[in-house]
């Protein structure tokens, strides 16, 4: 009889354990749950397009400031508010007459993200 109790109890322990682990993993396998980070990236890394995206995973609505520079010379400066967990695409329109490095610097509070392309 004791063997059966041990086996049944083990099954119960394991089901509880698996359920806890499954729920923890599912909740944490999320870009926003209990996390605080942001990301900036070019939409089309394979060409010369300067379209870029900011994703807010800071856990709250945040204001981002983005500057666009050509060869270190600032040409535009804008602010944008992004909801928690939201993705914001931005389509800058820039005329380039010669090869240059175009840099996009995004800041929010004390965070700074920089992406750039060397446009031929």
């Amino acid at each position: 009889m004791s063997s059966k109790i041990i086996i049944i109890a083990t099954i119960i322990f394991l089901i509880v354990s698996f359920s806890v682990l499954f729920v923890i993993e599912t909740k944490n396998h999320d870009y926003d749950y209990k996390k605080s980070w942001s990301v900036v990236y070019f939409e089309n890394p394979r060409d010369n397009s300067l379209d870029f995206t900011i994703e807010n995973h800071e856990g709250e609505k945040s204001e981002y400031n983005y500057e666009i520079s050509i060869d270190e010379k600032k040409i535009s400066d804008n602010k944008i508010e992004i909801e928690k967990g939201a993705v914001q695409k931005i389509y800058p329109i820039i005329d380039l007459e010669k090869s240059a490095r175009v840099t996009i610097e995004v800041t929010a509070d004390d965070l700074k993200y920089r992406i750039y392309k060397n446009i031929q």
């Binding site: 990236y41 890394p45 750039y116 392309k117």
Partner: peptide
């Protein structure tokens, strides 16, 4: 390094493309 563009930037990861 001037040969690279930086196409992705997060708190933890950076991705570069070689030109």
């Amino acid at each position: 390094y001037p040969d690279f563009s930086k196409i992705y930037s997060s708190n933890y990861l950076s991705i570069f493309k070689r030109n």
